[in-house]
Simulated scan of single mutants.
Amino acid sequence: MATNQEEVKLLGSVGSAFVCRVQIALELKGIEYKFVPENLANKSELLLKYNPVYKKIPVFVHNEKPISESLVILEYIDETWTQNPILPFEPYQRALARFWSKFIDEKLFISLMMIKSVRRMLQKHLILLGF
């Protein structure tokens, strides 16, 4: 559990699957944290400070040390707070868990984002056509 001397923050936006993934891990581990909501249309100075390369969420900050990318954050959380392990202990099982996490990110999330993008384009065209 995070002690009083530890500062734990999560920069993100409500509804982001990547942010939700980190929130679930923090809850499973029993880690107290401050959620800092981000408006991606108007990125805060804090987000730009902690993630100057990608300027994306989620960003996990532990004692003023920022970590980006949700899967990297999960591994950090699992290794830092050892209670209630997220990843299996056995190396082969850990590798499988990492494989499927990456697969889901690359295949499913990208596919869902493409579907949303196509749906938005269709809605705009239907409005232009008067439907």
Results as ranks from 00 to 15, higher is better:
residue 21 R to P: 06
residue 57 I to M: 06
residue 6 E to F: 00
residue 92 Y to I: 04
residue 127 I to P: 09
residue 77 I to Y: 07
residue 93 Q to F: 15
residue 124 K to D: 15
residue 49 K to R: 14
residue 102 K to G: 03
residue 16 S to Q: 04
residue 7 E to V: 08
residue 23 Q to W: 00
residue 44 S to F: 05
residue 119 R to C: 13
residue 50 Y to D: 04
residue 94 R to K: 15
residue 112 L to D: 09
residue 34 K to W: 04
residue 111 S to A: 11
residue 25 A to L: 03
residue 77 I to L: 12
residue 1 M to H: 08
residue 124 K to S: 14
residue 70 S to Q: 12
residue 49 K to D: 10
residue 68 S to E: 02
residue 47 L to G: 06
residue 11 L to D: 01
residue 103 F to T: 14
residue 56 K to A: 08
residue 30 G to V: 01
residue 63 N to Q: 10
residue 98 R to S: 05
residue 56 K to E: 12
residue 58 P to H: 05
residue 2 A to N: 10
residue 30 G to R: 03
residue 73 I to Q: 02
residue 121 M to R: 14
residue 107 K to A: 12
residue 90 E to G: 04
residue 93 Q to G: 10
residue 56 K to D: 11
residue 54 Y to A: 13
residue 47 L to C: 05
residue 116 K to P: 00
residue 103 F to G: 03
residue 119 R to V: 07
residue 77 I to P: 12
residue 67 I to F: 03
residue 8 V to Q: 08
residue 86 I to C: 01
residue 63 N to I: 10
residue 58 P to M: 02
residue 90 E to W: 02
residue 3 T to Y: 06
residue 21 R to H: 11
residue 99 F to I: 11
residue 23 Q to P: 00
residue 4 N to T: 13
residue 54 Y to E: 10
residue 62 H to S: 07
residue 111 S to T: 13
residue 116 K to Q: 03
residue 73 I to G: 04
residue 122 L to F: 10
residue 21 R to D: 02
residue 19 V to C: 12
residue 118 V to K: 13
residue 5 Q to I: 08
residue 51 N to A: 02
residue 18 F to L: 14
residue 58 P to G: 10
residue 36 V to G: 11
residue 120 R to W: 13
residue 74 L to P: 01
residue 71 L to A: 14
residue 19 V to W: 08
residue 30 G to D: 03
residue 50 Y to W: 12
residue 86 I to G: 09
residue 126 L to A: 08
residue 6 E to K: 03
residue 36 V to I: 15
residue 55 K to S: 09
residue 65 K to T: 14
residue 25 A to G: 02
residue 55 K to Q: 11
residue 121 M to N: 13
residue 130 G to M: 10
residue 50 Y to S: 05
residue 38 E to D: 11
residue 81 W to D: 01
residue 28 L to D: 06
residue 55 K to N: 03
residue 2 A to E: 04
residue 79 E to N: 03
residue 43 K to D: 07
residue 121 M to G: 01
residue 127 I to V: 14
residue 75 E to L: 02
residue 69 E to H: 08
residue 12 G to I: 09
residue 74 L to F: 01
residue 94 R to I: 13
residue 111 S to G: 09
residue 38 E to R: 07
residue 64 E to G: 01
residue 90 E to I: 01
residue 116 K to C: 14
residue 128 L to P: 00
residue 82 T to A: 02
residue 109 F to E: 09
residue 78 D to S: 09
residue 90 E to V: 14
residue 69 E to I: 08
residue 95 A to D: 04
residue 58 P to N: 02
residue 11 L to W: 01
residue 126 L to K: 12
residue 83 Q to M: 03
residue 16 S to E: 04
residue 49 K to M: 00
residue 72 V to L: 01
residue 131 F to R: 11
